[in-house]
Amino acid sequence: MWKEHGITINLPRPGAPRKISDRGVRTIIRRVLQLPRTTRGELQKDLESAGTVVSKKTISNAFNRHGLHARTPRKTPFLKKKHVEARLEFATQHLDKPMTFWEKILWSDEIKIELFGCHKTQHVWRKNGTAHPPQNTIPTVKFGGGSIMAWGCFSACGTGRLHIIEGIMTGEKYQDILDQNLVSSARLLKMKRGWIFQQDNDPKHTAKVTLNWLKKKKIKLLEWPSQSPDLNPNENLWKDLKIRVQR
């Protein structure tokens, strides 16, 4: 201190000392890295048992200084070991496929679109005391507001036909949808000879009546791993459609 400042007395500190010691911070960080769903309340109790009483905000500040932030966990399909292995095998087999291969694929999927309301978290900018004006609220109706089921397809050339599904979906109804829309969509998109049809492993898609129809029409199927909606680019298209309907 003498060499640096020319004095030996303690200099004023820039602020109050942190209530959680460096060792305590390392302990709680180690715990949340092992168990990410640990709550701040649980950490409060652990620190209190060690003689350190702090608020939840203090714990958050300690985490934020070390790059840890509370986030809503992403939702992913529940995968068993066989699903993981099948997805890995699919990725390995198709890793080096050229762009021309993917341009030959006609992707398909079904979607349920809510016609009223929104099921995702939304925010509005408002002042205190203005919670109830119509522009700051989200209307709701009893028993939901109705929905529409639809089947659609698309390729690198664009979107194919969109078919509205009425009633309960069965293997026979799915085959009828394909009969009305699949080949006509391929023609509309000017798909080249040898195009490949993609569908997931829904029981209606793998029903005997459906597979027999595809075989009769000599339509080649893309082998698709189970529990893999996140691999289907149709999901991105459906997301855009849902956002526009909600608006």
Rank of each mutant, 00 (worst) to 15 (best):
F116Y: 06
G15L: 07
N128Y: 14
K81P: 00
Q199N: 09
R37F: 15
W213M: 10
G15C: 13
H132F: 13
I105S: 08
I164N: 03
P225M: 01
V25R: 14
S147L: 04
I29A: 04
N10K: 14
I168W: 14
K218M: 10
E48C: 11
P14Q: 13
G41K: 10
M169T: 08
S185K: 00
Q227C: 10
T76M: 11
C157K: 09
W224M: 09
V209N: 09
F143R: 14
G167Q: 07
L88M: 11
D176A: 13
N61A: 14
M1F: 10
A131F: 12
T206G: 07
V245T: 07
W213V: 02
G152Q: 01
H163N: 07
D179G: 08
L178R: 04
D109V: 03
V84H: 15
K19E: 05
K190Y: 02
R74I: 14
L35D: 15
Q34G: 02
V53N: 09
E172G: 05
R74T: 13
Q135E: 14
T39S: 15
F78D: 00
D46T: 12
F116T: 06
G6T: 01
S108L: 06
L222Q: 01
I148Q: 03
Q199D: 11
R87W: 00
P98K: 08
K218T: 09
N234E: 04
H163A: 01
L79H: 05
K190S: 06
Q180Y: 07
R187A: 14
A186M: 11
R30Y: 04
T137L: 14
L241K: 05
E42Y: 07
T72P: 06
I168G: 08
P233W: 06
K82V: 06
Q180H: 09
P139K: 06
L88F: 10
F154I: 03
G160V: 03
R244H: 11
A131D: 13
F197L: 05
T72W: 02
R193P: 07
T130I: 06
A62N: 14
P139Y: 04
T100F: 04
I9C: 09
H66M: 12
P233Q: 05
T170N: 02
E110P: 00
Q246G: 03
K242F: 02
N232R: 01
K208R: 12
G194D: 01
G6D: 01
I28H: 09
E48A: 15
N64G: 04
T76N: 11
I219M: 07
S147I: 00
N128L: 08
K75V: 08
K81D: 10
R65M: 13
K3V: 13
K217W: 03
T159M: 00
D240L: 13
R30N: 10
R161K: 11
R74M: 13
I138E: 06
E42S: 11
Y174F: 14
G129Y: 06
I177F: 00
F90R: 04
I243W: 02
